[in-house]
Nucleic acid binder design. Structure first.
Lengths: 333, 333
DNA sequence: CACTAAGACGACAACGTTGTCATCTCATCC
DNA sequence: GGATGAGATGACAACGTTGTCGTCTTAGTG
């Protein structure tokens, strides 16, 4: 179906190798020969076969694998965007797959990507054992992890958000506005970022001599409805919190709903910025971070590895920024 | 670096072909031989090289190319998600690239994807000439377009949203609530979906015997700020509109801002649903559609083509749904 | 004119796999 | 006991490209 260099060569009356030279812009071809070849290429609609090229070269497929939870989720799609930007600069293609947080699927994806001989791997790891990756890494496939670190045993670069610092800044913001009874909505404790953010909450309170009141901490709400219910419960306490720190954007929305429903002036700071946070009835104060930057940094690290740089494993911590919009500045009642 | 089947064969004391048989689960290998081979595979950490496989097979790379404007944009990332779901079912990988609406980049992407011998192409075309694709299509690369049709000259499947019908339903909803002076915010007229939605607006008015008042139509606002300014201008008219139809979600947000700022009770229906539309101070009535479904349908069509089905070019029109939330039901003043 | 060297071009092997076909080993059967 | 055939295994070519090296042409030199 598709013509090969051999077909082009026949059509132009030259050898296969001469076509290769023209296609690759190598020197040592007379201009008139090159023209004949180019004419044949246009006439036949020839496209160099990168599959054969990668095989013959034996080295690079000029592609990298990206394993995320779900492209439809803005957090991950922004990561993907950052990765794609860097890949473009290096003339690489991104082959991506969604793990949907399923360890088996993640493993299958990574395995398939290795079989396709991607030059490198960018992974947001699910909470599972990643030791199966070690042979792949030893075999020379570079890998960089994002958002969550893999097991100790895996020596690879990681790019993380400063979860602890970001959470601390949120809670300190509330403390600075006079709050002492501050609730914490954290996601499932199996999730790395949830644990880290919860740790930031604890650290902020301790740093200001406020004892952690476990009755104000809710581990486990994982979606908007769960967070709404948990917040409603907190607000119904005899001695309710005057402020809420929500560990991610879904929890923030849930908390917001409950607070609106309760009609209180409870202060709220959420982790993760989200679109329209400034357009809501009460604009939401958030700890913002930059997923695209995470993708970029990870991809850059990966490219350095792919180019053979041999640094010790890097651990990059990306800063967060508190965006003050209103919901976090209500005084305690 | 990475072991090949030849290495495995040597290690197991069998022939290359026997390893191939074991790896591919072919029949005709004694269990004990298979075990020796599997042991060697584990010992060496062998991974079949899909590059070589694709070359030898000559046929399928089991991958498809996806060209969209920008993964970070929720509309496109949901398309990507739909595509990925179908790809997963067919054991295909998705290689994606962002065109950023740059025709040159789009062309480069498509060309590179063809050089990688993707089995099929899914494209949201930019407003440009796509005739360069014709040779690729003739050469047997299947292609399906999404969201916007390519030129007449290109015979390929297209999956579109029912832009005209959706816009008409929005405007008819406003008419049903008693509005006669309905403004229209449309994006740049170079954009296919903007033209179509504008057409739906016209058709709805005409169907109800309401003359189109060009002074209420704004072509050109392309972002939130532009829509906000345009809407402010409309509201400041001596005889302002009592309702606004906004042609996409950015324009809807802009219109909403202007209406809030003006403090009027102007009704608003927007094309495109968006997250938190129900959480805003005034929940927004929208014409919703399902980008992930578009990705799925397009990918399914593509897979049928890739499997050799030879139908005439299909044109799929996906329905929209009006979601009533409040902003579209204010009566005229 | 003979000799040299650079420049242009081609022949061939190799990348790692799989399809085709040949060979080899046994158990079975008359 | 030899013929038969099924089952297991291997040798080899081919996929489309590029690296290596050899050959041929031609311009330049003495």
């Amino acid at each position: 179906m598709r013509p090969t260099m051999r077909d082009v060569a026949r059509h132009a009356g030259v050898s296969l190798k001469t076509v290769s030279r023209v296609v690759n812009g190598e020197v040592g071809v007379r201009p008139d020969t090159a023209e004949k070849v180019n004419d044949a290429i246009s006439a036949l609609g020839f496209r160099r076969n990168d599959i054969a090229r990668a095989l013959r070269g034996g080295k690079r497929t000029r592609s990298l694998g990206l394993v995320i939870k779900d492209v439809a989720n803005p957090f991950y799609s922004q990561i993907a965007r950052g990765v794609e930007e860097v890949a473009r600069l290096h003339d690489l293609f991104v082959i991506s797959g969604c793990s949907d947080e399923d360890p088996a699927r993640e493993r299958h994806l990574i395995r398939s990507l290795c079989e396709r001989r991607v030059d490198g791997l960018l992974v947001v790891p699910s909470a599972a054992d990643h030791r199966y990756l070690i042979p792949e890494l030893n075999m020379g496939t570079a890998a960089v992890f994002m958002d969550r670190p893999p097991e100790e045993a895996i020596r690879a670069d990681v790019v993380l958000i400063d979860n602890v610092g970001g959470a601390r800044s949120a809670v300190e913001h509330l403390i600075a506005h006079g709050h002492r009874r501050i609730a914490c909505l954290a996601d499932l404790p199996g999730i790395f970022t949830a644990r880290e953010r919860r740790r930031g909450y604890d650290e902020a309170l301790q740093a200001h001599g406020i004892p952690v009141d476990e009755s104000l901490v809710r581990l486990g709400p994982h979606d908007v409805a769960g967070a709404e219910a948990a917040t409603a419960e907190l607000l119904a306490l005899g001695d309710p919190p005057t402020a809420v720190f929500a560990g991610n954007n879904r929890l923030t929305i849930g908390a917001l709903r409950a607070i609106q429903a309760a009609g209180t002036r409870t202060a709220l700071v959420g982790f993760d910025d989200f679109e329209l946070a400034d357009m809501l009835a009460t604009p939401v104060t958030v700890v913002a971070h930059y997923p695209a930057e995470m993708g970029r940094r990870a991809a850059e690290l990966l490219c350095r590895r792919m180019n053979g740089e041999d640094l010790p494993p890097q651990r990059v911590l990306l800063p967060t920024r508190l965006i003050v919009r209103g919901s976090g500045e209500s005084p305690p009642i």
